[in-house]
């Protein structure tokens, strides 16, 4: 594409990644979560693909599928983490450790270090959705793109 699109993509791609990370990270406090943040970050990836062509990203296909498998395995492992009680039991909530802070009842300003395994699951699912949607868009672009620069 033209230099205008490339320059705007260079500016907007980090911003979209950071915003996607923010939506994933605050998934247990504000509207959003893993799926939404992953979709936002994947839209940034699609923008790079439109601006710079698919050939330059062709060797990243293995990385994307590895990242997606890693996210799926991490999500299932976090589900198995609570197997002492039940599957998907949240044993980290209110435990005092990682993401185990106390939360006051009722409306509150929101503390990031709460909610147990939910933020970790948000990150796993966010990486999974980011890699999955990015891989789908990349495969579409690679299949049809014989004559792009």
């Amino acid at each position: 594409m033209t230099v205008v699109v490339r320059t705007i993509t260079r500016i907007l791609f980090p911003i979209s990644l950071v915003f996607g990370g923010y939506v994933i990270m605050h998934g247990h406090l504000t509207p959003g979560g893993g799926f939404q943040g992953g979709a936002v970050a994947a839209s940034g990836l699609a923008m790079v693909l439109v601006a710079f062509g698919a050939k330059r990203l062709a060797e990243k296909k293995g990385l994307l599928s590895a990242l997606e498998s890693l996210g799926g395995v991490a999500f299932a492992a976090l589900g198995f983490l609570g197997l002492g009680l039940t599957f998907f039991a949240n044993i980290l909530a209110r435990s005092g450790g990682l993401f185990g802070g106390p939360v006051p009842y009722g409306p509150n300003p929101g503390e990031l270090n709460t909610a147990g395994t939910l933020p970790l699951m948000n990150w796993a699912v966010g990486f999974k959705v980011l890699a999955g949607l990015g891989a789908v868009v990349l495969l579409f672009a690679l299949f049809g793109g014989e004559n792009d620069r």
């Binding site: 406090l29 504000t30 509207p31 009722g106 409306p107 509150n108 300003p109 929101g110």
Partner: peptide, 10 residues
């Protein structure tokens, strides 16, 4: 209101 307790209206 939305089912979110962060800065929820009372």
């Amino acid at each position: 209101i939305p089912p979110i307790y962060t800065y929820a209206p009372a």
